[in-house]
Design a protein around this nucleic acid. Sequence first.
DNA 1: TTATTCTATTAAAGCGCTTTAATGAAAAAC
DNA 2: GTTTTTCATTAAAGCGCTTTAATAGAATAA
Lengths: 343, 343
Amino acid sequence: MMSQGATIKDVAQRAKVSEATVSLVLNNKASIRAETRQRVLKAVQQLNYHPRQAARGLASRKSGNIGFILTDDHFSRAEPFYTKIFLGTEFESRKFKYYILLTTVPRAFRIETDLPRFLRERNVDGVLLAGHVPNALSEHILKLKLPHVFIDFSPRHKQGNVVMMDNLLGAKLAMRHLFDLGHRRIAFIGGDLTHPSIAARLEGYKQALLEAQLEPAEDLIETVESNTTTDDGVHAAEKLLARGAHFTALFTANDAMAIGAMQCLKQHGRQIPVDVSIVGFDDIEAGTHAQPPLTTIRVDKEELGAAALRRLMEMIETKKELPGKVFTPVELVVRQSTAPPAA
Amino acid sequence: MMSQGATIKDVAQRAKVSEATVSLVLNNKASIRAETRQRVLKAVQQLNYHPRQAARGLASRKSGNIGFILTDDHFSRAEPFYTKIFLGTEFESRKFKYYILLTTVPRAFRIETDLPRFLRERNVDGVLLAGHVPNALSEHILKLKLPHVFIDFSPRHKQGNVVMMDNLLGAKLAMRHLFDLGHRRIAFIGGDLTHPSIAARLEGYKQALLEAQLEPAEDLIETVESNTTTDDGVHAAEKLLARGAHFTALFTANDAMAIGAMQCLKQHGRQIPVDVSIVGFDDIEAGTHAQPPLTTIRVDKEELGAAALRRLMEMIETKKELPGKVFTPVELVVRQSTAPPAA
DNA sequence: TTATTCTATTAAAGCGCTTTAATGAAAAAC
DNA sequence: GTTTTTCATTAAAGCGCTTTAATAGAATAA
């Protein structure tokens, strides 16, 4: 066993103050004379002192941990979307001296068997819920009265504590870009509308049309029920073509579907962007490899995770609910899948 | 604040024993009468008692945490290879009542700024290092004398504490499959040979040839220096073609490169598998989407993570180094990228 | 029978912090 | 000059466990 390092006692002795003072300084609690504070901080540095989380947690009855929960399929899917959100969270947590406990739950979640251990043991001071989490889980967390923030999702019964990318704005940016290029007949492909992000993007599509004095045409909107995968994009595009819809541009609810739709359109002899311009949403890696590279709306995933953590920290510190949503910025990224409509 | 749940005191009272006995039962330490043990366990259940990690950690001077370290680029790359390893670890950790703290370090790692917080604060009882981690980091951990296991990588200076997939066997399985189909001229494409897995796969390729009484031909082996990405696969295949190498089958060091090589070969008019059979390694998702779907060697990533955790647990419990490598099983998965050579 | 060894249980100390009430000194108010 | 208030610091209790030495009783050996 190695030496276990300095304790608060060592620091107190070296700084010639009581242990209480050291603690007070380190947590900037009470009013401490500037000179005393300096003395303590110097001793801390010299001894390379780090408070033991266990001791701190026992005394203050806080765990110093935050739980990060998402479904296993979200976490291990090919596009590292939630992975990056997690990284943003983890990075931000360093500033707050919190540790993140990441765990996944199955989509077919059952309280009795699948409840994360840190919830059973109450070993977290708050939780982050990323993406579409099972209803039984979010309801359980509400019951626990545990501080929590939803990321890129919000359960039906619930208004606040949500951090989202600005889907409405993103959709409008995409549409304005297409308008600016001269497009007027713009189709929309979406998926699972129970997901608030997808629904908001469709809403943005419609609002943008209205703002441009255009009437949303039902036959230009295709929302497959299932999901939002590349395959779903293929199917949706096929349906659009099958019913002979006429459009010069396509806005899809995410990049995965955009890539699928692009494949399908090319297969049917449509050239991108000459015959059809396409704009996606999310800015996933695969979009940059598409042929042609996909114009899209960039979402800052790391910032999404960081913003959620900050919000949770605030809730934990103030012990208050913080209703209302937080929106993180989005940005148009123009690549080669968009161009003016062919004359 | 919610009620904080039962403590060991409550359990002791209800079971009419001392707190020490409860602790002893829960950690199966001393010899306890069966009847007493039952009484304690019953009380634990009735009160839904869970020991506080903080209290336990403070008293036993263990953190109850395991650190999981990998580089950020490994973690957030498109293929969820390490993500799945992590999931295997996290799942397995539940059995041992340990929590996993996942963190990433930059590839350009510097001790002063990038050392994971849980190492500075000594807040983990051991660490798992996944994939190619910076040398400065692994050396630092050796110095700390902290129990640790490398996953799918081992640093230069170090023999033991490594968990790997069985690369040598996997390569031989791939080669035998090609032999069985009738191939004799089999090329190899590899990348970064400083990675032990890639080196072992090349070694397996050579051994398999020798076992089949064939001489490895230098001009059939192409190992690009840089990396092991899809693009590297394209380049390697191009070099192979450029020098007019003649082969009916191709074994690549991983699926990513296999996919790249496949693209390249198709571009040059070679039909897969009619003109060239291809076998990859890893069984990544993208391989199933390739045209044709890729024959490959499946690696059980979850098991890799689980095995590493078990090994680490053993090291922590026995307080001993466990030198020697552990190999997890691999398996041949035949899809449509392999066929007998054209007559 | 008495001494010895086992077995099962517990008392008590201690892990390293936080937190609150108490204290003393200095400043402000009377 | 005395009382009150404010400021800076600390003593001491306690958070909920683990661990070790001590103890008492039962079983075995002498």
